[in-house]
Nucleic acid binder design. Structure first.
Lengths: 155, 155
DNA sequence: ATAATTAAAGGTCAATAATAGTCAAACCTG
DNA sequence: CAGGTTTGACTATTATTGACCTTTAATTAT
């Protein structure tokens, strides 16, 4: 039972695949197509097309305005993992952690089962402590797990 | 003379049987059907659909929220996994966690990479908090991860 | 030609809606 | 009375929207 946000995400991802990873859209036009408020588009972009997941979103206001979505292709698994390792050396929100896992999965660095194992580690249910500590632990855990994956890639 | 909780339990079990061990429900909708408070559903889930009794309960809050109940049928699961799941609902030391992981690996339930991913999660370096909290978190994390593995075995 | 106004575009943010979870108090039963 | 059951008040989370803001381009007025 997909909701509106999921449908818009799906549509945009299909577009991105069709156009080799880079698209340009009009916010109001897309909102018309899905019969929703224009700010719904912003919501989808801000929650589904994040840098953690490997996207760049550019935009321009005013006449001739547009929104461009670029899916970042990676040079190598090794390269991505090293970049992520630099990035996660700090507290992580659940959303950020999940975005990183999505990216790993999308690039076939981890498989389905590994994805699920990782996701569960970052869930609030597993880390049932206060918010600040949880985010801090997420940073630690992600770093540790990325190191394991990097090492296994080197083997 | 069955009480409300028993009736809800019965209803859910019939649903579970009808749908081959896995259902997705809406808390508020179910509460409406039984004319009870929504938190009554939580009570039933927390007392009748526990891991000890062979269930996994997942949920998501917010728009599009849901509750999913998965029954671990006896025939389709590994006995070791089930036993472990019941046992880990408590604080775990590093040694205990590692022992569990070793058993999973020795029984070929997890592979080398999964083993290493799991091990790193329970390492002191990842869970850099005081001892009591660490052991508590290890219990949570192990339970969560075992559930993932169990679910993947069911698929 | 320049300035002002209007149109066309995307962005922000709080309010609202829709969902599930927690917890203590009240109630019920044996 | 103890333990189990039910509930209501409140918290937490995710999704959607409308009012308003900001920016750029086009059009109109001077």
């Amino acid at each position: 039972m997909a909701n509106l946000s999921d449908e818009i995400e799906k549509y945009l991802n299909e577009l991105i695949n069709e156009y080799q990873g880079k698209i340009k859209i009009k916010r109001n036009k897309l909102a018309d197509e899905f019969d929703c408020a224009p700010s719904q588009i912003n919501y989808v972009l801000n929650t589904r097309f994040t840098s953690e997941k490997g996207y760049i979103v550019e935009s321009r206001r005013g006449g001739s305005g547009f929104i461009r979505i670029i899916k970042i292709s990676i040079e190598s698994t090794d390269d991505l993992l090293r970049k992520l390792l630099v990035r996660v050396d700090q507290p992580l929100s659940k959303r950020e952690a999940e975005g990183i896992i999505d990216r790993l999965y999308d690039n076939k660095i981890i498989n389905d089962r590994e994805k699920k194992l990782m996701e569960t580690v970052f869930h609030k249910k597993s880390l049932n402590v206060d918010r600040t500590l949880r985010d801090y632990l997420r940073g630690n855990l992600m770093k540790s797990m990325l190191e394991v994956i990097l090492k296994s890639e080197l083997d």
